[in-house]
Design a protein around this nucleic acid. Structure first.
Lengths: 256, 256
DNA sequence: ACCTGAACACCGTTCAAGT
DNA sequence: ACCTGAACACCGTTCAAGT
């Protein structure tokens, strides 16, 4: 219910006026246009004129949706999260141990950042002062609400781990600690893999599954059983790609 | 020697023309001015006019130093790294095991981000597409060279770990993997602690040493002895604050 | 050779007029 | 009530003139 409210996917869409629905559709249309411009010309080349010109609407209407350029970035970050969450959820039903489910979730996130690199980048950029200082407070609230939702999903993986006995929280460690550590590792790995490719310690490892490697360090450190020395999580990763995200993989391959 | 070249701290400063020295001094003067504006008004309020107005120089001269606003951010990131590296180095001589030295280094990084939050933020912002797309290639090269230097220091901690027998690299794990995992974790933790404070899983833990906690997960996962269950690394952290970074701590406390 | 600041250009943002 | 796009304003960037 929280989720429905946050995602605005509730079935009482019918109670929304036609205008509100149209508004939302147009917003996502504009976001797609913005993404296209970034894809073709880069982040630095995105501006509101181009968005307006590439859309059937005028500048004024654009500003009816986003009260600044930064607000547009925050909206893109929200769209990114909205697309990530369903991938996230799928991993809960992945066949395997609790740790395998969690790894499958990270597989999904990684796939997302390969499938929608621009949206994924927006999620990172939205945690940047220029954006947080200038986008609409309501927008940031929504972004935070969505992130809370992601955290609450993270909690579910941890519950599964605890219930199955695969994970025991050491004294002083809370569910929040575990979620945050996963988030921080995923965020850091993703930021650096995307924006620090010139660094030797990144480029020399491009062939290895760097995300899984970092994740295994982390989960081993949490004593989340089975440990990576006793289990082939690379297989889990590949299985998740095939079983959970086959459609997304096919899309990726059709693009290249 | 690599380091001297990169940091431009070589003793043949005397061979540099007076002009070059003046240029470098003025650049750091301008960077300090920019930091001051950000501190007082925020990132979004920084512009080149204000930098010029707050300095004894004209806009044209500012553009003699930085060929775009983004280039100025990259320069700030370089300044940040230049200030971090000495803190980094100090940790190599910290009294304790190899893991304690590494933790002490993270203590230093964390202190730096508390002592110079704006510079630390610039280091994060510099890994953002707007900046990488628009700053001068030579500037980015220098940034990368400095980061290589940091990586090479990271390697030294790992060498110490291996030589002492505290750390054994599992098959398929390289020194780069370990450095990258540390970097990613530090980067992610720092980004989120600074820019996602509204999130419940961050805010609920503000009282705990979240950086050390994440680091302990990671290092335990690497089997870097002694493990956190056998050793009180919070004490190490506090000892590093006192013994290695006492001066910086004093500065912090005098500010608040 | 370098510095200056007026001028320019781009683009974010607004708003009076239109529908 | 909402859309439009011309107008405005801010600010990044340049360059002719000055020293």
């Amino acid at each position: 219910m929280l989720e429905q409210a946050v995602l605005n996917l509730s079935s009482d869409d019918t109670t929304l006026s036609r205008k509100q629905v149209a508004m939302r559709e147009r917003e996502s249309e504009l976001l797609d246009i913005a993404c296209g411009i970034v894809a073709r010309e880069g982040f630095a080349q995105l501006n509101m004129d181009k968005v307006a010109a590439a859309s059937p609407y005028s500048k004024g209407t654009i500003y009816n949706h986003f009260n600044s350029k930064e607000d547009l970035f925050a909206a893109l970050a929200i769209q990114a999260l909205g697309k990530k969450i369903p991938l996230f959820k799928r991993a809960l039903d992945f066949e395997g141990t609790s740790r395998e489910k969690l790894i499958a979730m990270h597989t999904g996130m990684h796939l997302f950042s390969k499938l929608s690199p621009i949206l994924a980048m927006c999620a990172l950029v939205s945690r940047t002062p220029a954006v947080t200082e200038k986008s609409a407070p309501e927008r940031l609230e929504k972004l935070n609400a969505l992130e809370e939702l992601v955290v609450s999903f993270g909690d579910k993986f941890i519950e599964l781990g605890q219930r199955s006995g695969d994970l025991t929280l050491a004294p002083g460690i809370t569910s929040d600690s575990i979620v945050f550590a996963n988030w921080a590792m995923a965020f850091g790995t993703s930021s650096l893999v995307n924006n620090a490719t010139q660094s030797s310690c990144v480029s020399r490892q491009l062939s290895t599954n760097i995300v899984l490697q970092n994740l295994n360090f982390l989960l081993d450190g949490m004593h989340w059983a089975p440990l990576s020395c006793d289990f082939d999580y690379q297989k889990t990763w590949e299985r998740a790609e095939k079983d959970l995200y086959g459609k997304e993989i096919a899309l990726l391959e059709s693009q290249s």
